[in-house]
Amino acid sequence: MKSADKHRKIIRAATKVFAKKGFFNARISDVAKEAKVADGTIYLYFNNKFDILLSVFEQEVGKLIEHIGQLLEKESDPQKKLTLFVMLHLEEMKKNRYLAEVIHVELRQTSKLVKEYRKNKFNEYLNIISSIITLGQETGVFRSDIRPEIARQLIFGALDEISIFYTEVSSQYSIEEISSQISNIMQTGLLA
């Protein structure tokens, strides 16, 4: 197996293990077992468990940034961009429920460690929301008295909670309906 493939395999395994056991309770051997590699193989790719967690954020959130960024580029209307962002986020979290759980739990429990991390992809992901808000303000669609950095936390917080609710329960609502509800509620407060 190529080293890039093995690296991805370990990341996927770690995401699943961290989601099920939690970062602090998970052991390197749990990740190795899930990835079907020897414990020592993990250390060929990662320095320690925290390095694996950061790599989960870098790789998985990096993929989200790339995918969502490409689709948002095609849209110019800030309201439609925000609705699209909400829907794409929920779709991705439904597809990767382990990532949804890791983001939901580990960003809170290990937040001090993650905040100290300099190349924070997660912050880059949140900045997508800020840029949509800023665009809406520049075009006169969104209120100018809203602070984009506060709005992004509010919007992401709602998405994070809904993502967990949606992935844990076979929801009676479609992603489209949930996206529409969230977007309508958020945009009612944002509209100029």
Rank of each mutant, 00 (worst) to 15 (best):
K63Y: 10
S29W: 00
I132F: 01
K94D: 01
S29F: 10
F165I: 14
N47I: 01
S29L: 13
K9Y: 03
Y166N: 09
K20D: 10
L190F: 15
L84M: 10
D160M: 03
E75V: 14
A4F: 08
R152F: 03
S55E: 12
L90I: 11
F57Q: 01
Q70A: 11
T110P: 00
N96D: 14
I28Y: 11
I68C: 04
A26W: 09
Q70D: 05
L82I: 10
K94A: 06
I103H: 06
E73G: 01
L135T: 13
K16Q: 11
E91V: 06
N184M: 12
F142I: 10
K16A: 12
V141D: 01
A100K: 04
L126C: 03
A35W: 10
K36H: 06
Y166M: 08
E101P: 00
K33Y: 12
A26N: 01
L64R: 05
T134V: 10
V37K: 11
F23C: 10
K119R: 13
F85Q: 03
M93K: 11
I10P: 00
K63Q: 14
E168M: 08
L191D: 01
K74F: 02
Y43R: 11
F46S: 04
M186Y: 07
E34R: 09
K9M: 05
K36P: 00
K74S: 07
G69M: 11
T188H: 14
I68A: 03
K16L: 02
E73Q: 15
K63N: 10
M93T: 02
I28G: 04
L72S: 01
G69W: 12
A151M: 11
A100P: 02
I162R: 05
I146G: 03
I42E: 04
N120E: 09
K9Q: 15
K2M: 05
V105D: 09
A158C: 09
T15L: 07
D39R: 14
K20W: 04
K121A: 09
E75T: 14
L159H: 07
G157V: 03
D30T: 10
V141R: 14
G62Q: 03
K94N: 04
A4D: 05
Q137Y: 07
I128S: 08
E73V: 05
H89L: 02
D5N: 12
Q59S: 13
L88D: 01
L107E: 06
I155R: 09
